[in-house]
Design a protein around this nucleic acid. Structure first.
Length: 484
DNA sequence: TTCCATT
């Protein structure tokens, strides 16, 4: 709560500062009251500025850019809900010429303190018409540099940008982005190059396709997380499947993307609304929830609960691909789906029809997972941080969720895992009945930022598990004015 | 084998 008021105050302060002193480059004093922010040229260019340290705001950045001309508008991009600095900004000079000078002088030329990569100063996406022109290039070999890729693509048009993706150590990830000046050129390159050759050492032929959109990227990430959850928690996968929840969350995330092209989904994670209902039907029919969980059935195996979850947090929160401890998919996971649980006919079979094959799928799955198979995974995680052990730490206001209508079988671990994809979880707790040691079917999850909480609400509120629908809403803030 | 951010 302190954060919001702070940022509001800052915003107000900035507004007060609006009638600012005349910029360095301008001649003579401003006419009082006149020319509020000046006029911008009709052909002015809006610039995108990237790689800005998050502790710099407009007033910190102004001096850097003013030396190239009078600034018409400079806006640091912030998350609309949290006010969190996004590390980039939009900049428009009054004069087109200033923008060009700034781009020439600064783009990739200077690295701001604390940044790993040089500052980006280039026309904003909104400035360029012409839709898709950025390509993803896969199946390069790791020796190929930007120059090599450039050589490959130059014949098809003007290349605005060419980046080989690299790991933290600078080694190539075997793929690249190439941005052409037009969609047509990009299309031509795809046509000519995709599958055209196999780079020495690459496992298959060159991939050239349009790069993922933001939406596709988000989806892809969630899918990766879903995959990891399945690997980490085989005992939880069925029948109260986080899969079904995530599947629906995924469905909600995407609007038209998947409905038109589901081709890039792997079979194992391709869901349809029909399949989700099937999974729901299974759970409401009272299948044993966690076949290899300890006797109580209320808690997950400690190894999973304490070790596996934090290991998942790392890649989500800091994006270090290198720390993901479980490369590749899991064959057993495929098996479940291959054995008829998910791929039902689309007709809407009766409950009786769905129950049997689903049940056999469960049996088969658990049979392949003696606990011994899980243990090495948990052990591979060094120093399990006591993430779940800590007492209910509340997040800031707006970060804490109340979740009701949880399945009886859900414990803290399940709750945590269900909400992991939406952000960094500070704490999560399912409330238990003291007398019976049974879940009260509600709990709390705290994120470290309100945006994650909102995302989680959007994705999970109303989600159907079995006969119940989750209620996911902000926890009522403790109001000191109303002690009761 | 999908990136650092695009109001």
């Amino acid at each position: 709560m302190a954060r919001l008021t702070e940022s509001e105050a800052r915003r107000q302060q900035q507004q007060l500062l609006q009638p600012r002193p005349s910029p360095v480059g301008s001649s003579g004093p401003e006419p009082p009251g006149g020319q509020p922010d000046g006029m911008k040229d009709l052909d002015a260019i809006k610039l995108f500025v990237g790689q800005i340290p998050r502790n710099l705001d407009e007033k910190d950045l102004k001096p850097l850019f003013e030396q190239f001309g009078r600034i018409y508008e400079l806006t640091v991009l912030k998350d609309p809900y949290t006010g969190m600095h996004k590390g980039c900004a939009f900049l428009t000079y009054c004069a087109r010429d200033s923008a060009i000078k700034a781009q020439t002088a600064l783009h990739e030329q200077k690295t701001l303190p604390g940044m790993a990569r040089p500052i980006q100063v280039k026309p904003a996406d909104s400035e360029s018409r012409g839709g898709d022109r950025k390509l993803f290039v896969g199946m390069l070999n790791k020796q190929q540099s930007e120059e090599d890729v450039l050589r490959l693509f130059q014949p098809f048009g003007v290349i605005d940008e060419c980046t080989v993706l690299r790991g933290p150590d600078g080694s190539s990830k075997g793929c690249a982005f190439v941005k052409f000046s037009s969609h047509t050129e990009a299309q031509a390159a795809i046509h000519a190059l995709h599958g055209s050759q196999t780079m020495p050492g690459a496992s298959s032929s060159l991939v050239v396709k349009f790069a993922d959109t933001d939406k596709e990227r988000t989806l892809r990430r969630m899918q990766q997380m879903v995959g990891q959850l399945g690997i980490l928690t085989p005992s939880l996968t069925l029948p109260f499947s986080p899969y079904s929840a995530y599947a629906q969350a995924l469905m909600q995330q995407q609007t038209t993307v998947l409905s038109t092209s589901g081709s890039y989904l792997s079979p194992g994670v391709a869901f349809s609304p029909c399949h989700i209902q099937q999974i729901g039907a299974v759970s409401l029919n009272g299948l044993p929830a966690t076949p290899i969980a300890p006797a109580s059935g209320l808690h997950s195996p400690p190894l999973l609960g304490t070790a596996a979850v934090p290991s998942l947090v790392a890649p989500i929160t800091n994006g270090f691909a290198g720390v993901v401890p479980f490369p590749g998919g899991h064959p057993a996971l495929e098996t479940v789906y291959a054995n008829g649980l998910v791929p039902y006919p689309a007709q809407s079979p009766t409950v009786a029809e769905t129950l049997h094959p689903a049940f056999s799928g469960v049996q088969q799955y658990t049979a392949m997972y003696p606990t011994a198979a899980i243990t090495p995974i948990a052990h591979s995680v060094p120093q399990p941080p006591p993430l779940l052990q800590q007492q209910q730490r509340e997040g800031p206001e707006g970060c804490n969720l109340f979740i009701y209508h949880l399945p009886q079988e859900f414990g803290d671990t399940e709750l945590t895992q269900m909400f992991l994809p939406f952000g960094n979880i500070i704490s999560s707790k399912v409330f238990m009945d003291r007398a019976t040691n049974q879940s009260k079917c509600f709990g709390f999850v705290s994120f470290d930022n309100p945006a994650s909480a909102q995302t989680a609400i959007q994705a999970m509120n109303g989600f159907q598990i079995g006969m119940k629908r989750l209620k996911v809403q902000l926890k009522r803030p403790k109001d000191p004015g109303h002690p009761y």
